[in-house]
Design a protein around this nucleic acid. Structure first.
Lengths: 230, 230
DNA sequence: TCAAAAGTGTTCGCTATACACCCATGG
DNA sequence: CCATGGGTGTATAGCGAACACTTTTGA
């Protein structure tokens, strides 16, 4: 028989955090999923997540999950919604605080539980456990909105990147196509990119210039009020 | 001695919702606060809120709080953040799902607990219980961001309003001043306003034309992609 | 008759957009 | 030598910001 050693005067729901971990492979946006090893939904793919400890905030809990799955310690991470449908979990009432994280896919090493973690392109995700499809959909929507105010793109790219990569990322997030020349002009004009005098071969036709993100410039622009129109 | 009749294998935090209820009085943005009748923070002003029932979602819980305080049944309401600091509440671990609501201040009637509810201008709020100052600050920030994508302003105004009122509301939310003529032109140009052939006397100098919000036009614009720049 | 509120247009500069040309490379 | 990828510049239209005049009314 189970020991039920925690007692309360009123009923309490369980609280978890779930993480939608986005990574960009240079072509498509991907999300990291784990295969559940226990019931319910055993064998089903799900978002990484877990119960909130009593001595940690939701942010700490989500960061812990991220570290366990990716080995990353300080990725960009943001709370975006709390899901509280009554029957989310068949075991008991569970509400989950959902986060999304942006990571450089190259930096991800197998975490503690990495055996069953796997990247999926956003347009080819499997069926998910619980209400995780809804959570994933909400995360995608939030990311699309955030990108207008925050340079979230840069969190997903390596330190040095080509303009083409940056464009592909924005196209992948927003689901639209941009004119290559206008995209170059705009990005260079707003000034958050520092051109490097380096090139790299991405295609086998021609080498590309590399850029890096300029955080000081970005902070300055955010203070003055800022818009990134697309 | 208290009866502790709810038992769990693992510790569970308590979960509440808190509501930041904004109202516009034609001049300034206001927030509805309640005076706490019980410990902790007895006598202190706080955001309306309460414990999540086991048979209601966070959204239902917040709507219930709103109804109890304002008598309103279907105001605009939006979840914006979940606060989970460890010692938010001295009694036990409590996490709170925070919502903000936009209501027409004229439509608010005394709710069930109205005796101790009171509107405060945003620039003259008293000291608040718990971490409610932080919650209020986050709500203001969220509202400022939302107003660029959603016509949240209209939720705060009466059905018929003058251009001046609309401008004052936007100024109050964003904390800036606009050129009266440019504001008129822009608002009329984007087409979400329907001019009414009616006037009303707001000042004692000259009567003002009235407008109403056009939701169909707004939905159409939102589908096509949309920006409200200020 | 003067001050304050409110309604209406014009001008200018910037920027988003559409679009064309050149260079380098591998086959 | 040509197809492909990649770098750069220009012309135009539309929008945002600055700005002036008129009318109405109460004091």
């Amino acid at each position: 028989m189970e020991e039920l050693q925690y007692h309360y005067k009123y009923p309490h729901p369980a609280v978890t955090t779930d993480c939608v971990i986005f990574g960009f492979d240079g072509d498509k946006l991907n999300v990291l999923l784990v295969e559940r090893g226990i019931e319910p939904f055993k064998g089903c793919w799900a978002l990484p997540g877990g119960f909130l400890g009593m001595k940690e905030t939701a942010e700490e809990c989500a960061a812990r999950e991220l570290r366990e799955e990716t080995g990353l310690k300080d990725a960009y991470m943001q709370q975006f919604h709390t899901f509280s449908s009554i029957n989310r979990d068949p075991r008991e009432r569970v509400i989950t605080i959902a986060f999304y994280a942006l990571v450089r896919i190259q930096e991800v090493i197998g975490g503690d539980d990495a055996a069953q973690a796997q990247w999926f392109p956003l347009d080819a995700t499997p069926e998910l456990a619980f209400d995780h499809e809804e959570i994933l959909e909400a995360a995608k929507q939030t990311l699309r909105e955030q990108i207008h105010f925050e340079p979230v793109g840069f969190e997903l790219l390596p330190e040095k990147f080509s303009m083409k990569q940056l464009q592909q990322l924005y196209e992948a997030i927003l689901g639209v196509k941009f004119d290559r020349r206008n995209f170059y002009n705009k990005m260079l004009h707003i000034g958050v990119l520092t051109p490097l005098n380096e090139t790299e071969w991405f295609s086998n036709r021609k080498e590309s210039f590399l850029y890096k993100f300029n955080p000081e410039k970005y902070e300055e622009m955010k203070r003055k009020g800022f818009k990134l129109e697309f």
